[in-house]
Amino acid sequence: MTTIIRLAETASLIGDPTRAAMLYALMDGRAFTAGELAEAAGVTPQTASGHLAQLVAAGMLAVEAQGRHRYFRIASAEIGAILEGLQLVTADRIGRLPRPGPRDAALRKARICYDHLAGELGVALFAALAGAGHLRLSADGAALSDSGTALLGSLDIEVPARRRPTCRPCLDWSERRHHLAGQAGAAICTAALARGWVRRRHGSRALDVTPTGTRAFAAGFGVRLP
């Protein structure tokens, strides 16, 4: 009986149009603020906060703090699978997906985030490293695996040993997926600039990926940018 009650409670949470719209907006793996999810659902931020609190309490959403912002994302692959299954029986688009981050296409493609690569380039690099097993991801963050250390060594990218974490997932402003920060992220960025893989745009944090860089990121890290 308890299982049936919990099932009904979960169905009730998803069945609310406001919560359904916010969950739908999160289905592509990105993370959004309460304000952005309020916009996607067409409700006030105050109303959205109440709904988000319920979803977090039920374990359907996880919260990640970055600076002064709190970002919400789908809590697990199992929750994502439930929502994906529900989408199979409806062809209608729920809500309006928010488009976070800068409007400048160059900033969205590649930019500097403090001292590491961000934007589409940074997120693709993080995904490629994690997908190949060069990064070990956990609830505590990220760490270079033995193969990751060997990869950077083979590319003559030196990661200095300092108090700062070697690897740190950093939630990307525009992509709302993680890019690589920490000593390893900074070392890759430094190498990319020094070797002409990317070039700074004057007066901007935007970076241009050069033809040499396109080849280098593909050959060295398995990153293929559009």
Rank of each mutant, 00 (worst) to 15 (best):
S154K: 10
S154H: 06
D156Q: 11
D156S: 15
I157A: 14
I157Q: 09
I157F: 12
I157N: 13
E158G: 03
E158L: 11
V159C: 09
V159Y: 03
V159G: 11
V159Q: 07
P160L: 11
A161T: 07
A161F: 07
A161E: 08
A161M: 03
R162Q: 09
R162M: 08
R163I: 03
R163M: 13
R163E: 12
R163Q: 14
R163G: 15
R164D: 08
R164G: 00
R164V: 09
T166V: 15
T166G: 13
C167K: 08
C167H: 03
C167Y: 07
C167E: 03
R168F: 02
P169K: 04
P169S: 05
L171K: 03
L171H: 08
L171N: 12
D172V: 06
W173V: 12
W173F: 14
W173C: 02
S174C: 10
E175D: 10
E175M: 15
E175I: 14
E175S: 12
R176F: 03
R177D: 07
R177F: 07
H178A: 14
H179W: 13
H179Y: 10
L180I: 09
A181K: 02
G182R: 06
G182M: 10
G182H: 08
A184R: 10
G185V: 08
G185R: 08
G185T: 02
A186Y: 05
A186E: 13
A187C: 04
A187S: 14
A187E: 07
A187M: 05
I188V: 15
I188W: 13
C189W: 07
C189F: 15
A191R: 11
A191Y: 05
A191W: 14
A192Q: 02
A192I: 03
A192R: 02
A194D: 15
R195S: 13
R195G: 09
R195N: 15
R195T: 04
G196T: 12
G196D: 13
G196E: 08
G196P: 10
W197N: 13
V198D: 13
V198S: 12
V198E: 10
R199H: 09
R199V: 09
R200N: 04
R201D: 10
R201Y: 05
H202Q: 15
H202Y: 14
H202G: 05
G203M: 06
G203Q: 04
G203I: 04
G203S: 02
S204P: 00
R205L: 14
A206T: 08
A206K: 06
A206S: 09
A206F: 02
L207Q: 04
L207H: 04
L207W: 13
L207M: 03
L207I: 01
D208G: 00
V209G: 01
V209A: 00
V209T: 00
T210E: 00
T210R: 00
T210A: 00
T210L: 00
T210C: 01
T210K: 00
P211S: 04
P211W: 00
P211R: 01
T212V: 10
G213A: 09
G213S: 06
T214R: 15
T214P: 11
